[in-house]
Amino acid sequence: MEKIKARLIQDYLNQFVDRPVYIHLETTNGAYATHHNREAYNVGAFIRNAQVTFSQAKISGDEKSYRVGLKTGNGWVYAEGLRDYQIDQHKRLLLAGHDDQGRLLVTLELSLQPFTN
């Protein structure tokens, strides 16, 4: 992945507006958070292959932590802590944030085709 370039991501997000889009949205602190640190506890959520249509899409923030908000017909999709991006060979937009050891903290992915599995 590469560091997010906000202009480029904004342009790419705009291409998804008003089209049915499959999303993968996830945040996690790992399955072993409690195991490694008794004070911590495991937190995570993911949704995969939810189909949404949004009328507005915006990226804001800065390289420390970008946020993306997608305004849907009757709600929102939101992610915070995004730093890295990739547009893969299936033209999917992958956005993610990782800690200093490369562990995934958050990811928001958009695709016109369903994700595998």
């Binding site: 992958l94 993610a96 990782h98 050891q101 562990r103 995934l104 595998t116």
Partner: peptide, 19 residues
């Protein structure tokens, strides 16, 4: 292990390529 968290630093994997 599709939901593994280690993507490397610099990243060598994404959620979609990890499997």
């Amino acid at each position: 292990g599709e939901m593994g968290r280690n993507m490397g630093n610099p990243t060598f994997a994404t959620r979609e390529t990890l499997p």
